[in-house]
């Protein structure tokens, strides 16, 4: 499907459950409420016209100014050759969203990584152990933008940043 067809198809299928965002370099992007994510993903996988069978990328993103935190899902369909970008935005204090690893197993490690580095809880995750950090890590969530650790040294300004 072309991006335009996909956009209208998704709008028609999900109506007010999704909210359109500016496209990511030609890829249609949508915002989904955390409570609708499971339903939306079920349709995305099972609908024969959408048929998103592959999850190339999943990552967290932090917005301390608005006190929000989000998860970005980059989806792809090998069968139909189209991309989609989904986003879930949650409040920063106790972010919780459903795990999508039952739709795409690839999400398993991506979610473990995101949970560990951003502090987002993935409900019903099959194996919610930490993945990357040292076993006795207790300094919070390092990928949050306002994180400061005791061993963390910021690079001095080089003058190229301005």
């Amino acid at each position: 499907m072309t991006p335009e067809e996909l956009t209208s198809k998704i709008k028609a299928t999900f109506a007010e459950k999704v909210e359109e965002l500016p496209a990511v370099t030609g890829i249609p992007a949508f915002k989904v409420k955390p409570e609708h994510l499971e339903e939306v993903c079920t349709t995305l996988v099972s609908d024969p016209e959408l048929n998103f069978d592959n999850l190339p990328c999943l990552g967290g993103i932090d917005y301390p100014e608005t006190n929000e935190i989000g998860v970005v899902y980059c989806l792809f369909s090998f069968a139909k050759r189209h991309h989609l970008n989904l986003r879930v935005i949650m409040p920063r204090d106790n972010p919780e969203v459903i795990s999508v690893s039952k739709f795409w197993v690839a999400a398993d490690w991506f979610e473990r990584e995101t949970a560990e580095l951003f502090g987002i809880k993935f409900k019903d995750h099959p194996d919610p152990r930490p993945l990357l950090l040292i076993e006795e890590w207790d300094e919070g969530y390092p990928m949050r933008r306002d994180w400061e650790g005791k061993d963390f040294i910021r690079m001095p300004e080089t003058g190229q940043e301005k």
């Binding site: 040292i134 300094e139 390092p142 650790g149 061993d151 963390f152 040294i153 910021r154 690079m155």
Partner: peptide
């Protein structure tokens, strides 16, 4: 090395 600054691990 290159991971001296801005690095937590």
């Amino acid at each position: 090395g290159p991971f001296y600054y801005d690095c937590y691990s």
